[in-house]
Design a binder for these strands. Structure first.
Lengths: 214, 214
DNA sequence: GCGTGTTTATAACGTAAGTTAAAAACTGAT
DNA sequence: ATCAGTTTTTAACTTACGTTATAAACACGC
């Protein structure tokens, strides 16, 4: 991406990164909205005492850096979890498009509402559900999203998350996540092997998740 | 609001309610965005086992029912906490305005991003902070918002929340909220009397909240 | 295959927060 | 002022999850 690139080429660019790379750093002002094409990524926050809270897990098709639409600095760091490919769009370019085609903006409102709903659902999990329910719901959520994106059809999904990452998403410790996974494994509800998670007993998983209500 | 009202009058309507009334019921399809004018209200969810999680506390000027912009059903119930006054706008009317003045839509994107940021901040609280920190941060958040709205200037703010409500917001029990409040009271950090909360030692409160980082 | 670093498993123990219960303090209506 | 209903306080006891530590299982470069 040298200085010789024309305006046009900067509007949409492609990128990639290895696993565990910072893609957006807080404070940075990239001014670009990123759409993940391949791989998994994380939006997370670090508290002052060094603990981490994962805010959302990004799958192919998901958006990062949406705050640039109205803000000028990155608020939430984004990092790759697996090797990733993504494309990024200049915000001023997106706003130009929106200026010509106002209906386009409603897409952003929709995306924004959806991600707000998702984070409020997580809020309910952390506030009012125990560790087993939280894990079951995380797995069912990933399973549903991967299925919707055509990245999984059966009961098996890719699962590149370390236990520490799961813990940071669920507000637990790695040790306790290990305990809960063992419990679900021993109940023949699920199985995790070589980066793949298999749901052995969907009914039981949904029962522990209390999945009937949002 | 009889059937004889003309179209024009339905676009913007005023309303009021006593304390503890349901203003928006889940499943309902009111198609109206509500702006709170006076009083406090709550957006909350009930889990299948009957526990409650408060998703946000609405102060005068805040918006409820924003999901109607893109959805057709109420997802999150809203109830008044004190007597309230509000006005409501028909969503199709808002979209008309937006059609004539596209920049207006960006306002919604902005509002939506802000409330998403707020709920992600709460997510960090519930996932990674203890009861004392959560309460301190809730109080500082309310203090800041009331100050910004000109509804409080000094160290005293109106505080119409029951301990059970605070508990439902922080993912705790009422009993534990009582314990934490006692601890802060005994440390001469704050005082709650007749619906008013006074911050006696702001530095100490900010220290317990670890307020320097978001 | 071997060594190094990372991740997971398990155990023993600690604690913040939950549960239950009962008394005390409010609140508002009459 | 009195009463009924609600909210808060406090205490005793329980528990889900955290902490610390160590061993086992993986992963991967040479």
């Amino acid at each position: 991406m040298g200085a010789s690139l024309g305006e046009g080429e900067r509007r949409k660019t492609a990128g990639s990164a290895l696993a565990r790379q910072q893609i957006l750093r807080p404070g940075e002002a990239s001014g670009r909205v990123i759409v993940l094409r391949q791989g998994w990524a994380l939006r997370s926050a670090i508290t002052s005492d060094g603990r981490r809270q994962v805010l959302s897990i990004l799958l192919p098709g998901d958006i990062a850096g949406g705050e640039f639409l109205m803000r000028d600095k990155v608020r939430v760091p984004v990092q790759s979890l697996t090797p990733v490919e993504y494309c990024s769009f200049d915000v001023t370019y997106l706003k130009e498009i929106a200026g010509e085609n106002p209906a386009f903006i409603w897409t952003f409102v929709d995306l924004c509402l959806s991600s707000k709903e998702a984070s409020e659902a997580r809020l309910i999990d952390l506030g009012r559900r125990n560790a087993e329910q939280r894990l079951a719901r995380l797995i069912l959520d990933l399973h549903r999203r991967l299925r919707e994106k055509g990245l999984s059809n059966g009961a098996t999904i890719p699962f590149p998350l370390r236990q520490q990452t799961v813990a940071d998403a669920l507000g637990l410790t790695q040790v306790h996540v290990s305990r809960v996974i063992r419990s679900l494994r021993q109940s023949r509800i699920l199985q995790i092997r070589s980066g793949q998670l298999t749901i052995l007993d969907m009914d039981a998983l949904m029962a522990t998740a209390e999945f009937y209500e949002t």
